[in-house]
Nucleic acid binder design. Structure first.
Lengths: 137, 137
DNA sequence: CATCTTAATGATATATAATATCATTAAATA
DNA sequence: TATTTAATGATATTATATATCATTAAGATG
């Protein structure tokens, strides 16, 4: 039951810094690729492990999407995301966070609600432009 | 561009009927297992294909969850679901559907919003009971 | 500073979920 | 009944992520 001390490693700071620099909600693999050129010794497994640990920490957040790999957001505070159904890109949604939603579903079916996320899907501006171009052709 | 006719096969009706009978938001694999005893010749791949086709049809809906396989709901009309973080069970959430949410995020970042789902997570009554029992022990 | 304990890492194997491929079957139509 | 081709069954493959385990090194201790 005693708290296990967490060690600060070179890998952790590199992975976290890279996530912050990328900033565009990359997947674990994207973070790995970005790191790999300059730090070929850092393992893919370590990237997955460190990102998940940062999520458990509450330092960052994981953004699950309908299809494909999880994305990661270097900002931990609760907010919504939208995922492009064409290219998979994830962006922030500038909408007030509805903290009362969890409570609203609270009594339902006797569940104790622990989290509640809204997943928006759509077509990003770039992909809309591509669509338009294809239609004209 | 012409519409391709869809064929009615024995497998489709068996798979759809099984989904309706199970009713408890099973995964594709659960549907396969339920079918396999009585219909060993029906392939797992066919179960996946037919379920996805029914989703595309709008006959049923796919329920994506944070962790683990997608679940399927034989009812197509839009409503929310909650997934137990202990046992993975999926249940309906009796809460009015907020159709205006899509519009609310509409202008955001220039995305054309196509869908919006809320994913509740929590601990189901059964797992709460187990937890309590474990704490007492 | 040297030593010790063990958390963290790197390499790899494995698990899981789902799709792709392709020869064969059978539904719908003529 | 014959024809066309969508659908199927078997299997391989892909994608994402975790598990395993020997090795490394962070942080504490003397």
């Amino acid at each position: 039951m005693t708290e296990v001390p967490e060690r600060n490693t070179r890998q952790k700071s590199i992975i976290y810094n890279t996530l912050c620099c990328l900033s565009n909600h990359p997947t674990a693999d994207c973070v790995y690729e970005a790191i790999h050129d300059r730090h070929p010794a850092i393992s893919r497994a370590t990237v997955y492990r460190v990102l998940n640990r940062l999520v458990d920490n509450g330092t960052i957040q994981k953004v699950g999407v309908n299809r494909g790999a999880d994305h990661f957001d270097h900002r931990a505070h609760p907010h919504y995301h939208i995922c492009c159904i064409r290219c998979g890109k994830v962006s922030d949604v500038e909408m007030p966070y509805m903290a009362e939603l969890e409570r609203q579903a609270g009594d339902c079916r006797g569940y104790r609600v622990t989290s509640c996320s809204i997943q928006f899907e759509g077509v990003c501006p770039e992909c809309q432009r591509k669509e338009k171009a294809d239609t004209v052709r």
